[in-house]
């Protein structure tokens, strides 16, 4: 069964029994142990690979050295022949034959190291992919578990604080009403502020003797006197 199906089954089954763990802790622990084992294998494979690659490099150097040796001795043999020293040339040729057989042996081991290294590299890649996949699955199981536990903590908190989840539309209406009230207050404050600034302008004008002036006692008296006439 795929991990998705397992989780789905567990979540649906668990929905009836809130707080029950979806995957028993023991199997999670076993899974974690498997991942650790796989990681240990990977570390070992990487170490082996390093060893094989070192051997490969040294074998490759050896092959180069023997090849150089052979071509050098071929030169010697030719020179001996040019001097007409057949016996010396034969001796050098024997040396070349020995070197050639040594070369064959070394080329063989180099090929074997190379194929070993390729195999190990593939193994390392495969193990790494597998571990990544295991970790992804474990993370899914753990997240599901953690969400279930968090949900039960949230549910407990709601029931203990005597509050409950409101109907969604009611919640939205209440939030909108609060936002409206806040906006209204903001607008009222703006209006008030602009009135204040109007007032202050008026005061300035008055101080400068521009616009309507306060009724002074004298002006009232003048008015009354005018009425008496």
């Amino acid at each position: 069964m795929s991990i998705f199906k397992k989780i789905m089954t567990a979540v649906r089954g668990g929905a009836t029994e809130v707080g029950e763990s979806i995957v028993d802790a023991n199997s999670t622990r076993i899974f974690e142990q498997e991942i650790r084992d796989a990681e240990n294998h990977l570390t070992k494979a990487k170490r082996d690979l390093t060893g094989v690659m070192a051997q490969q490099m040294s074998a490759s150097r050896e092959v180069d050295r023997i090849k150089r040796d052979i071509s050098e001795h071929e030169g010697f043999a030719t020179q001996a022949l040019e001097q007409g020293n057949e016996a010396l040339a034969l001796e050098v040729a024997e040396k070349i034959a020995a070197l050639e057989s040594e070369l064959a042996t070394n080329e063989q081991s180099l090929a074997s190291f190379e194929s070993n290294a390729t195999r190990l590299k593939e193994l390392v890649k495969k193990s790494e992919r597998q571990i990544t996949e295991y970790k992804r699955q474990l993370s899914m199981v753990k997240t599901t578990e953690s969400v279930q536990k968090a949900t039960s903590a949230i549910t407990d908190n709601f029931s203990s604080s005597n509050s409950k989840l409101l109907n969604a539309k009611d919640s939205l209406e209440r939030i909108k009403a609060k936002q409206q009230k806040f906006d209204d207050q903001l607008k009222a404050a703006e209006v008030l502020e602009s009135e204040d600034s109007d007032n202050s302008l008026e005061a300035k004008l008055k101080a400068a003797g521009i616009g309507a002036q306060d009724n002074s006692a004298n002006s009232v008296l003048d008015r009354l006197k005018a009425k008496q006439k």
Partner: peptide, 19 residues
């Protein structure tokens, strides 16, 4: 913070306490 088997933080946005 809400305590439980897993720690949960309840965050209220001021003005939106319902959600």
């Amino acid at each position: 913070p809400i305590s439980g088997e897993v720690d949960v933080l309840q965050i209220s946005v001021i003005g939106r306490e319902e959600l």
